[in-house]
Design a protein around this nucleic acid. Structure first.
Lengths: 109, 109
DNA sequence: TGCATAGTTCGACAATAATCGAACTATCAG
DNA sequence: CTGATAGTTCGATTATTGTCGAACTATGCA
């Protein structure tokens, strides 16, 4: 049950995080994780082939946005929200709010 | 004195903004603007050739991060902070704080 | 009109990133 | 060991970005 490498919070790079979140597909993964966590890759896959999904998760992992825990045969992903919050306070939350806002402003109008 | 096109705030795309800010050079421009605004391109140029600088400003403009006002022979740039704040509350501020934090935590240690 | 300044546009090239099929690895069930 | 499942790695292709010199545009000043 080999695990992944994850950068420590001190090594997080703001530009890498912004880049990771600047892709709509990856941003949508992060949004989904923010409401249900942890979650395997499969239900987050959408219509993409597995190799693409794997690539995007790897970008998210390397940026420090997501942590992947190998448990049995599935890979459980969760946001590294506490570490992100400690390193870059408010960043993830603000971006998620902005994302929620831009994608069909919920039940208000 | 022809002016530039700038997207209206309603057309801002979160992913485009994140992408614009995910480049270290562009992020540094935005940081400099945040402390002194408005400012022409020249003093923000760093060591890059004019054509590169122009390209990066164009990315920032198209994303809605920067507004460029042509006044006489210089192009005065400022952040569209109020509009950004209205559209994506806290986003720019949080990113700027994160940027300040990651680039050499000031006088503390 | 002529020249300097500030910045853009063009076009070519280099580097980075996204996409996807196919083959592979690891774990679990039988 | 066999088969199934979950996801990765590889390698090739394409698309998007960044970079920069050279030519260009617009304004201001003499």
């Amino acid at each position: 049950m080999k695990q992944y490498e994850h950068p420590p919070a001190e090594a997080f790079q703001l530009t890498a995080i912004l880049h990771a979140l600047s892709d709509p597909y990856r941003l949508s993964i992060v949004q989904k994780l923010s409401v249900l966590q942890p979650q395997p890759c499969a239900p987050l896959q959408g219509d993409r082939p597995k190799s693409s999904v794997s690539h995007h998760f790897s970008v998210l992992r390397k940026a420090g946005v997501v942590r992947t825990l190998v448990v049995g045969v599935t890979h459980m992903n969760s946001l590294r929200d506490a570490e992100l919050e400690a390193r870059f306070p408010g960043l993830l939350k603000t971006i998620l709010e902005a994302a929620a806002q831009s994608a069909g402003l919920p039940a208000q109008g």
